[in-house]
Simulated assay, not measured.
Amino acid sequence: MKKTQYVVVGLGRFGASISKELIKLGNEVLGIDRDEEAVDEMSQFLTHTVVADATDEDVLKSLGVRNFDCAVVAIGDDIQSSILAAIVLKDLGVKKVVAKALSELHGKVLQKIGVDRVIYPERDMGIRVAHQLNSPNLLDYIEISKDYTIAELSVPKRLCGLTIRELDPRAKFGCSVVAINKQTGVIIAPTATDVVNENDMMVIIGTNVQIDKFESEVIR
């Protein structure tokens, strides 16, 4: 199977973290940064690293970035460079461009220039932590759109031994259990007869309202 090829522009904390994780997941990563020290530090972890200005179209063209499957613009605090790099990557025909935004306005500009996905690391992490603090049984929370969420909920002792049919989250709340993470392994797309046990992790998908209702009425 052909490995997915990523180019990550900006090797600060966010860029370095995402690059290393992409490598761990079996992908190839080209890291680009103006800072020679940052590039040297990451060279042992990534497939290739280059000291370069990612706002220079000729430089990116010479690196063959148009052949990459996805580009991640992870530039730290230089909004102008972030926007210019994203424009160049889109113009060169990179299939998918993802960019980190420092503010809502920055994100709107990135969307206007055609970036495929805008990430707000600080805001999104803040939302996830707030939900985890608010709901002790909520292990993770990922907003996949304005209305829809994926949540990972820990099964409490009183629900031990119940089947998905008995819980019936779809009929009662409108949300669905898409996976159960057990100590013995993960059940993807569980059937109505699958049983949950204490400390299993249920992965639920639904609207924010549906999941909040399920979590407050069933899990707590």
Rank of each mutant, 00 (worst) to 15 (best):
E198G: 05
F214A: 05
V218L: 08
V218K: 01
L139E: 10
I150W: 09
F173W: 06
H131R: 15
V186R: 13
D91R: 06
N181S: 13
N197S: 11
I204N: 02
S176G: 08
S103Y: 11
A74V: 03
K172T: 05
C70K: 04
Y120V: 02
V195C: 08
T149C: 09
E198M: 11
I79T: 08
M201F: 12
D140S: 13
V177K: 02
K112F: 06
I164K: 01
C175D: 04
Q80M: 12
D194S: 07
L153G: 07
R158M: 12
T191G: 12
L102F: 07
V196I: 13
V97Y: 00
R117P: 00
T207P: 04
N197Y: 11
V98H: 01
I75N: 00
L84V: 14
V97F: 01
V73Q: 00
V195K: 06
Q80C: 08
S145F: 10
Q111Y: 04
G76E: 01
V94W: 01
V72D: 00
V218S: 03
K100W: 02
T163I: 06
I164E: 03
V129S: 05
D200Y: 02
L105M: 14
E198F: 06
M125L: 13
H131C: 11
K96R: 13
P169K: 12
C160N: 14
Y141I: 11
R158P: 09
V218P: 00
L153K: 08
E198T: 12
L167F: 07
G107P: 02
T184F: 04
R117V: 07
R158A: 12
V203L: 14
G161L: 02
I144W: 10
A85I: 02
I142T: 11
G206N: 06
K213W: 05
T184E: 14
K182H: 14
C70I: 07
I150K: 12
N208R: 15
Q111L: 12
K213E: 14
I79V: 14
S81V: 00
I144M: 09
F173L: 04
N197M: 10
A171Q: 12
P121R: 05
R170C: 04
K108Q: 12
I127H: 07
R123H: 09
H131N: 14
A179S: 11
V203K: 05
C160Y: 07
C70A: 08
A74R: 00
E104I: 15
K182Y: 06
L84S: 05
V73L: 04
K146M: 10
V203S: 10
L102E: 07
L167M: 12
V196E: 01
L105K: 15
D147I: 12
